[in-house]
Nucleic acid binder design. Structure first.
Lengths: 361, 361
DNA sequence: GCTGCTCGATGAATCGTTTCATGTATGCTG
DNA sequence: CAGCATACATGAAACGATTCATCGAGCAGC
């Protein structure tokens, strides 16, 4: 039951310890005959290498961990899949840990990952403040790459998407359709993304539609439920005081808003236009296909993993890099409508044609 | 940079190796004074226990792995979260691996997990045939619990949901609404679930609506894209030959079918009723809220983890158990409509139909 | 004072690999 | 044949934590 060890394999094959190890790690220095015999013994005994011992000796592991805020969020699952592809082709193993936006849980995972001396860590920390904890990793020589957080930190790499630009895209689009009363739904504002997207929207409106107003509605979480609540509050307003457009900090919120508005007979986009963020797969399949700001999710994961492996190889010579991707607006039905109160901005409808802006770098 | 080891801590604190170890593992046998001093040293030196060494000695790890078919599928993410809760409260660590329905990748992960001597394994294998690979785990004393697969295997526990019953629920519901021409969309049929759900539907119809017919449309995958394709093929039929109801093997397919039908101006549920499977969160938020067969997903994960821990504790005395949960039908708009009497379809109002969403390939 | 206990602390032995200095044939060159 | 590579194989010495038999000190009881 206890699995065989290298010593038993050596005895069975009639060779020494070191030879078996060489067969496993540097097959080329072993003569074909011996190699055959050893492989045979391994097979016969059902030997499986003990990674703990190997790591203990080698001092480092070949697993890379990614700690995400929410495994249920399609944004993260795509990031995971991107990272996975890279790690796999480098012969490593990617393990996923779910902090569930819970700082205590994140802490536990970080403790255990540190004890395991993982080769590297990809993480979207629960709070931007928790970075101190990560310094310990760096100090122990474990590279850390921040995903979609804390861009610009001097002692670690990061990948992110330009959220200010994303906010701009959404707001410019809505302004172009004549909306002057736009509500931004998202929260908590302490999350950088949430704040940045808002800042981008604000800036865009200031430039392009000085009369327009951006109201902020702060939510406690970025969930469907919170979105539904936001819609309730909009529906409770007298029709004249409602915003004509809603821009949500992510698609889950937007889907919730959509459900909530529809439940109250408020039509999207005729009564209220709606733009989400992330362009998760389900955005296109929503009750009203959802306009959304798309982020290169898989790319984010791939790049993060690449930076990590790079740092892992280069060691001390490594200089940290901060990669920022540009988002892209995907216009669908939910915002494809001229704002009613102020006709005569631009003529024909966009007709649902291929949206987005492929012109950016 | 290289982190301190237990020996340096001992020297710094002026005690022996064993004492430090005791402070870490059995604090009660160490006098408070000494304990204080050791903890202080640990703190000062930034000591982090090396799990490889610990495991090497202890012979076993405290991480439990779950290998899922697709991290992007909400079904699995909920299972993960259920399992996570249990593993966490038992003081362990759950790592998630994504096989992506790729047998080679699954194989790689299993190899590495075996080398790591994980404490246990929760897995939904890519193919029911790959079970042989898992025997090696059992032989090495690593408990394996099958999730939603291979119920009844004598040498491992399993948790599953009664898919035959689920198929029955859906078919009975549609039969009650007067449908006699139902199409089952799902595949590959080699997946037990897909086959079982179909078998349940067939059985239910035979009992309850002997005149009804269940056509099978086999898909290559259980994805939104495959669903869209299925809808294309339905739309290509002359209206008189179309099924009046579609039952999909999962919600992703159903969402795809919904999109596809809508794009062709076929109304759901008026022209075709639709029932999905899994009741993922997005089912309720779909273009037409989707009827679906709900599985107790988180419960599945929790129970699987519990069985695993149980087996892990009991060791050889353990007798394997197979837990089967019952699914539940959630009726929403997509199927909430009496089937129109035989030839006559209700005419009129083709007007409001949206041209559909061209945004994705 | 001696015995018998308890409470703490000790450190050598151990887990399974990898590494590396060392050893032993074997073949080649001049 | 001496001299010297070349090619393989060897096994002791790490790696860092845990365990366990052992020891010393303090104390109670007779």
């Amino acid at each position: 039951m206890a699995s065989a060890n290298i010593k038993e394999v050596a005895r069975y094959a009639g060779v020494s310890l070191g030879t078996v190890s060489n067969v496993l790690n540097r097959p080329d220095v072993v003569s074909p005959t011996t190699r055959r015999r050893v492989l045979d013994a391994i097979d016969r005994l059902g030997y499986v290498r003990n990674d703990s011992a190997r790591q203990l000796r080698a001092g480092r592991s070949r697993t890379i961990a990614i700690v995400v805020l929410d495994v249920s969020n399609p944004f993260f699952t795509d990031v995971i899949r991107g990272a996975e592809a890279v790690v796999e082709s480098a012969g490593g193993m990617l393990v996923v840990c779910n902090s569930g936006e819970d700082a205590r849980r994140e802490h536990r995972y970080l403790d255990m990952l540190e004890e395991q001396r993982v080769q590297g860590l990809l993480i979207t920390p629960v709070s931007d403040g928790r970075h101190k904890r990560l310094d310990a990793f760096v100090a122990h020589g474990i590279p850390v790459v921040l995903v979609d957080r804390g861009s610009g930190h001097p002692s670690r790499c990061s990948v992110a998407v330009d959220d200010v630009a994303g906010g701009r895209l959404a707001a410019e689009h809505l302004a172009d359709r004549g909306h002057e009363r736009i509500r931004y739904v998202g929260g908590p504002l302490s999350i950088r993304q949430v704040a940045d997207r808002r800042a981008g929207a604000t800036a865009a409106l200031a430039e392009r539609a000085p009369h327009a107003r951006l109201e902020t509605y702060e939510t406690a979480t970025l969930s469907v439920t919170a979105g539904r609540q936001a819609a309730e509050d909009i529906a409770a307003l007298p029709p004249g005081e409602r915003p004509t457009a809603v821009f949500c900090a992510n698609d889950l919120l937007a889907l919730g808003v959509l459900q909530g508005l529809t439940a109250h007979g408020i039509r999207v986009p005729e009564d209220i236009a709606l733009v989400g963020y992330d362009d998760i797969d389900f955005a296109a399949a929503a009750a009203v296909p959802l306009s959304s700001v798309r982020q290169p999710r898989a790319r984010l994961g791939r790049t993060a993993a690449e930076l990590l492996l790079e740092e892992s190889l280069e060691g001390d010579e490594h200089s940290h890099r901060h990669v920022v991707f540009q988002p892209e607006l995907v216009v669908r039905t939910s915002s494809d409508h001229e704002c009613a109160p102020r006709p005569g901005r631009r003529g024909g409808r966009g007709g649902g044609g291929r949206p987005g802006d492929p012109s950016r770098p």
